[in-house]
Design a protein around this nucleic acid. Structure first.
Lengths: 237, 237
DNA sequence: CATCTTTTATCGAATATGGAGGAACATATG
DNA sequence: CATATGTTCCTCCATATTCGATAAAAGATG
């Protein structure tokens, strides 16, 4: 889900600055130090966006931009111009850059622009339309992932985000036993297989809300030594 | 039964943006990158409406417009002007454009204009528009997108443009959780490079007006870590 | 008695909000 | 017609507040 950004500049300090800030903001960053390398990486790495300095060794930014466009690479480009030169700006945009920015700039500014461009392009997956309307049903539970709502016997339950995501994940894998590690990596994004009982706590919270009256849990079963699973309640319903 | 729209612009990002949003709204989209291609496609594809940039390679928008009219092509045209240039606007309209719009614009704005034009053109045909013509109702809220009016318990509310647009978008996706980015990309101009948190401010202003007396918001709910959603107020009414 | 559940307290992060600055627009004035 | 003046609205920022995540500890269960 994280976007890949290619930074092309010959000034190491600029590259470092951008790389650091972009990574902080959750982007994946690839760098290049001259125009030729920039071209190659633009093609090979297929980044979601490119930050391109105008003045570059071997091949300047304008040329890179032009050649990429000729090759029908429609990757969004944020052009960096060293001075406030109207002429260059206009030229850059005509060559197909999506935005420009004059040095010096603040990290905040760069991030804002990048987000604006990505937003504008909207390359974010418009394909998910079928998944949108779905309703997950388990017993008397009704889960609407889009609406962030859960109903139990038609009554709305108030769940915290973690509880909600945990439940959705369990529901999407109804009947299957899921280990704590699986749940951790799916809901928490923890990569390690550490020993943590956080899952237990949230399972407990969930049960509090969806197992209203019962003594033994009907929905979320504990599989001792393994993990948990959500299943269709036995008996009548 | 979907309408066909021809988008003529030389800026790839604008074309992409419009195409995406129009397709989302159920239009069929054809694109062209310069004036000549635009002319050809206007004739060959017989679109129901044309979005035409003023500044174009090979043949500018004004010229395209003029030639089409001379050929008795009465296709509705929505003109895009890069800068706020009164002269161009007037000229464009005199040449037979049906409406104009200055860049930058917000996606919602374009859609509204397009629908307005189409409605105006074929006011004879009773359309089955589910979207624009109806009034949106949520609880005691009544929203008339066309009239730019909102009523709460029958009383007219004074909303600023941003507040209004935001509310309409929320209302059209009633119940759905919308992230700040989604709201930004729908309601704000495509080149807005500011802070995502601006959404919070306008939400706050909206709540001030539509959540009159209540402690907890009834209409606009905050989904922590995600965004906001507008929903039917709980309880009865 | 080991495992699972519940409770409690604390910390940190996300959100709400008031106010300042400034741009855009409208109206008044020369 | 161009320049003032005023107003509205948008955006940003700083501060206050709310709320959830988590660790630790106490309690329950088989």
């Amino acid at each position: 889900m994280s976007k890949k950004v290619l930074v092309v500049d010959d000034e190491p300090s600029i590259v470092t600055l951008l790389q650091y800030n972009l990574e902080q903001a959750g982007f994946e960053v690839v760098t290049a130090n001259d125009g030729e390398e920039g071209m190659q990486k633009a093609i090979r790495e297929q980044p979601d966006l490119m930050i391109l300095d105008l003045m570059l060794p071997k091949m300047d930014g304008m040329e890179v931009c032009k050649q990429l466009r000729q090759q029908k690479m429609m990757i969004p480009i944020l052009m960096l111009t060293a001075k406030d030169d109207e002429f260059d700006k206009v030229l850059g945009l005509e060559l197909g850059a999506d935005d420009y920015m004059t040095k010096p700039f603040s990290p905040r500014e760069v991030l804002a622009r990048i987000k604006a461009i990505l937003r504008r392009i909207q390359s974010s997956q418009p394909a998910h339309e079928e998944e949108e309307r779905q309703t997950l049903r388990i017993g008397n539970l009704e889960i609407l992932p889009d609406h962030y709502e859960v109903y139990f016997n038609g009554e709305r339950l108030e769940l915290t985000p973690k509880e909600f995501e945990l439940l959705v994940y369990l529901a999407k894998h109804k009947g299957r036993v899921l280990t704590r590690d699986q749940l951790l990596s799916a809901v928490w994004n923890y990569d390690f297989a550490g020993d943590t009982r956080i899952v237990d706590v949230h399972i407990s919270h969930l049960r509090e809300k969806i197992e209203q009256n019962t003594k033994k849990p009907l929905y979320i079963k504990t599989i001792r030594g393994l993990g948990y699973k959500l299943e269709e309640p036995k008996g009548d319903d």
